[in-house]
Simulated assay, not measured.
Amino acid sequence: MEEQQTCGRGLAQNAAVPAALAAAAAGLAQNLEVHVRALDPGEAAAAEEQGVYQRVAHRLRRAAAELQAAAAEMASAVDLPMGAHDMAAITTTDVLDAFRDHVAAEDDLRRLLEARRVENQLMLAAIREEVGGPDVGGRPAP
């Protein structure tokens, strides 16, 4: 027998979104952090770049931690008891607008990631070739 869909189950099912955003933010932070090693801190432009990268990486790490915490709380809500809902309050134009905006934002994110994928794969291949192979770091080529 199929279990009844509840708001808690819906919240738990949506936990994958902030978890994926957390992983992407943490990955970008890590990329910035390792990039900084290539910079010459004695050169003015490189020192400025280093400062920006370090500040951005720190912010991304904080954001990733918050997103991961939200994802964990969402996932833990799977057995949240279903509360009484006022259907008149949940079937209004502002609720429709909020959900439409949410769906549009996810669509925009998907398009952004798809557009970046080709360039990112090309850069990954170039770095992989310089480093010396497809399995560097213990991860196979995507």
Rank of each mutant, 00 (worst) to 15 (best):
E2C: 13
T6E: 13
C7F: 12
A12P: 01
A12M: 01
A12V: 03
A12G: 07
A15W: 01
A15P: 00
P18G: 03
A20K: 04
L21A: 12
A26D: 02
G27R: 00
G27W: 00
L28R: 11
A29M: 00
N31F: 06
E33C: 00
L39H: 00
L39T: 00
L39C: 02
P41D: 03
G42N: 02
E43M: 08
A44G: 06
A45N: 10
A46P: 02
A46F: 05
A46R: 00
E48N: 09
E48I: 06
V52D: 10
V52P: 07
V52F: 08
V52E: 13
R59P: 09
L60H: 02
R61E: 09
R61S: 10
A63M: 12
A64F: 01
A65I: 08
A65P: 11
A65Y: 09
E66D: 07
E66P: 00
Q68V: 01
Q68S: 13
A70E: 11
A71C: 05
A72P: 07
A72E: 14
A72R: 12
S76V: 04
A77I: 05
V78P: 13
D79M: 13
L80Y: 09
P81C: 09
P81H: 11
M82Q: 15
M82D: 15
G83A: 12
A84R: 13
H85N: 11
H85V: 14
H85E: 14
M87A: 15
A89M: 01
A89W: 01
T92D: 01
T93D: 13
D94Y: 06
V95G: 09
L96N: 14
L96P: 06
A98H: 06
F99C: 14
F99K: 14
R100G: 07
R100V: 09
D101V: 06
V103S: 15
A105L: 05
A105K: 04
A105Q: 03
E106T: 04
D107A: 15
D108L: 05
L109T: 02
R110P: 01
R110K: 09
R110F: 09
R110C: 07
R110L: 03
R111K: 08
L113E: 07
E114Y: 12
E114G: 13
R117H: 14
V118N: 10
L122V: 15
M123G: 14
A125E: 10
I127W: 07
E130S: 07
V131W: 04
G133I: 02
P134H: 10
D135Q: 14
D135A: 14
G138I: 01
R139K: 15
P140L: 08
P140M: 08
A141K: 12
